[in-house]
Design a protein around this nucleic acid. Sequence first.
DNA 1: GTGGTCTAGACCACT
DNA 2: GTGGTCTAGACCACC
Lengths: 124, 124, 124, 124
Amino acid sequence: MFIVVSVNNPEPMYQQVMDQIKEAIAEGRITPGEQLPSIRTLTKELKISAITVKRAIADLEREGYIYARTGLGCFVADKKPLEIKEEKGAEIREKLNSLIQEGLRYGLTKEDVRGMVEEFDDGK
Amino acid sequence: MFIVVSVNNPEPMYQQVMDQIKEAIAEGRITPGEQLPSIRTLTKELKISAITVKRAIADLEREGYIYARTGLGCFVADKKPLEIKEEKGAEIREKLNSLIQEGLRYGLTKEDVRGMVEEFDDGK
Amino acid sequence: MFIVVSVNNPEPMYQQVMDQIKEAIAEGRITPGEQLPSIRTLTKELKISAITVKRAIADLEREGYIYARTGLGCFVADKKPLEIKEEKGAEIREKLNSLIQEGLRYGLTKEDVRGMVEEFDDGK
Amino acid sequence: MFIVVSVNNPEPMYQQVMDQIKEAIAEGRITPGEQLPSIRTLTKELKISAITVKRAIADLEREGYIYARTGLGCFVADKKPLEIKEEKGAEIREKLNSLIQEGLRYGLTKEDVRGMVEEFDDGK
DNA sequence: GTGGTCTAGACCACT
DNA sequence: GTGGTCTAGACCACC
């Protein structure tokens, strides 16, 4: 599959799995109703413990991205990519705000931060 | 002193202490050469464990913000506020970039993020 | 036939099948002595595994709703719709009671629950 | 502590733990800011695996009932008992509705169900 | 001491 | 085969 996890990555492995599945849904690489590889399959492919995969799957289900059916497998839920984008947007906005807050406390201004965004190279 | 730590804050306590001392230096509330309260004093005032204070102090020393003289106490190093600001700026830029990266993966653009910065209310 | 099973429904498939057959009997859509479609037929129509259909059939027989004659097929038993209704009523009462119990533990009253029933829209 | 789990109870053990802690908060037996027994303590008292307790704690945190701080322990969050009551009320209403729905399909009426509620003995 | 993550492996219900 | 629950035990960061 399209997932890669690394122990070097400071993020917990189950989150790495979650994030990459969310991304795949957001990008439409996997679509609502589609079946995911089984936990056991993922376990083998990613070479990590079944429990870790299970945890990622369970959390994704709790967040509404997928639904799991015993005996059948896991399926992508009807959440629209747009919805996911908005959710992620809100999350990023929140992190951004606390980042700006932090900067302000050290004498940086909103403009400084905006400048940093401008200087970011998105390849365009 | 000027430090407050809280269990509600998800950041580790030793980081809360470090951040607030850094801020105090950045803002000039404490100046190079000035002596910090002793670990014992901080321990009592903040009502936290001595080991936690020690860790904060040790980390600050490793990062060059303060220096410790056994038997005398801890003193603010010669690092200039400007230097601190730049250091923090670099740190923020890095976090910002990975935040934008994350957004791009979910379909947000650099402009979306810049917009979020604009919308941030810094009270001006 | 009149049965639809869905993966979206969190209930086990064999239960979905059972429930719909029970309903059909309760409503008189199929009557005592009448023959049910064969397991093979159901398997094809519902596009589910034969083992799942078998389980539903076996459970229905155990509960007395139908009887199976090897080589001939399955037939609706003599259970009267009224009997089924009462059985279901008892089942619902039991679930209802534990639901109220649960509510009581969180500070809801019997009256709160009765109010919820009143507010239910049964289209009348 | 005030928690009892049983393997006989068809509910998963981690849910039994969760439910009883939610109840304790709803009833005000434990109050916001108060510290819960440590996972290890609960593990010993309940005689179940640490993982099972951890799962309950993690889920409670995700639902906003408590917050956990590494090295410090778990604390009751600021969620008001009223809020919990409402949340539970909505949950019960939903279950109730699908129970009524089920009844309707078997010929029971809304009034039948209301009668069942009336007949429930809440000791008053 | 605390919670957080990860592993290896068991048993169950469902398909 | 599938996912769901539970166990026993490891290692880590934090207090």
